[in-house]
Design a protein around this nucleic acid. Structure first.
Lengths: 142, 142
DNA sequence: ATGTATGCAAATTGTTTGCATCGTC
DNA sequence: GACGATGCAAACAATTTGCATACAT
């Protein structure tokens, strides 16, 4: 149950927090922008301001409930932090996002960081591609 | 010579374009923000507006002279596009950036995209790490 | 009851655009 | 001389912040 997670994180259980967490859980496979979430709330007739959405997301990120990604293009997107790390494939045509993990890549990254005298903390890997579901709009693409 | 590159790209050879390209070449190892470049220009007593810097960078990106990256944190950074692709290691402490290429990772990415039914166009991989040059400010870091 | 969280509007920040003028070809 | 390029200021978009009020504990 989500309110438990909020409390466990040391945050007061408030309606906006619960609602936002719910939306993130319901759209678990999606990667939502702050505006997306705000729009969901409006549709659900919840009277929650956009500023609050940003504030809550930032707090959630701080306590590790949520991950934030900066893909290409202005907005940041947020997803629930399920604990298991993963990278992303993003379809340039339809925007669909797929998650994946590749042990070999993980290992290589670790090795590369070490070879260069770094201690690896994090990484971000995104593949920009075209899924063959898409009606490949313009023949060959970009 | 840089003005040749500009002409070759089909752009008029203007002072702002030449100057900006020069700055990018001089700081070849750095990854500069639009503001960084603007500041360089000011120091060099060149009367070039920030808007022009953005316009020129965007055009340069369009013709493949420059690559744009969205690392963590607001600003985009730009670097000369030397043709050879590479990824980045970014030091969380001092901001230093190292470039690398790993054939194994490149191969795996290609394979992963295919396995998931995608045609890979591009990718962005950044390792966030701590270089052991840095006086590891706060013991264990974040 | 207390102090934190929220809503709203205003402020910031990074980037883009409109328009009159300037410079390159 | 023509037409694209520039400078400046205003416009925008995403996100953050100040402040009076509302709410969880």
């Amino acid at each position: 149950m989500e309110s438990a997670d909020i409390k466990k994180a040391g945050l007061k259980v408030t309606l906006p927090r619960v609602k936002i967490l719910e939306i993130l859980e319901q759209n678990h496979e999606a990667h939502l922008t702050a505006e997306d979430i705000y729009r969901c709330l409006l549709e659900a007739r919840e009277d929650i301001g956009l500023a609050t959405v940003y504030r809550v997301l930032t707090q959630f990120e701080g306590v590790g409930l949520v991950r934030k990604h900066n893909f290409e293009g202005g907005q940041s997107v947020y997803e629930l932090d399920t604990g298991q790390h993963h990278d992303h494939i993003l379809c340039l045509d339809c925007g669909k996002i797929i998650e994946f993990v590749d042990e070999e890549i993980e290992r290589r990254q670790q090795a590369i960081a070490e070879q260069n005298g770094f201690e690896l903390e994090e990484h971000s890997l995104t593949l920009y591609a075209r899924c063959n579901r898409c009606p490949n709009r313009d023949g060959e693409g970009r």
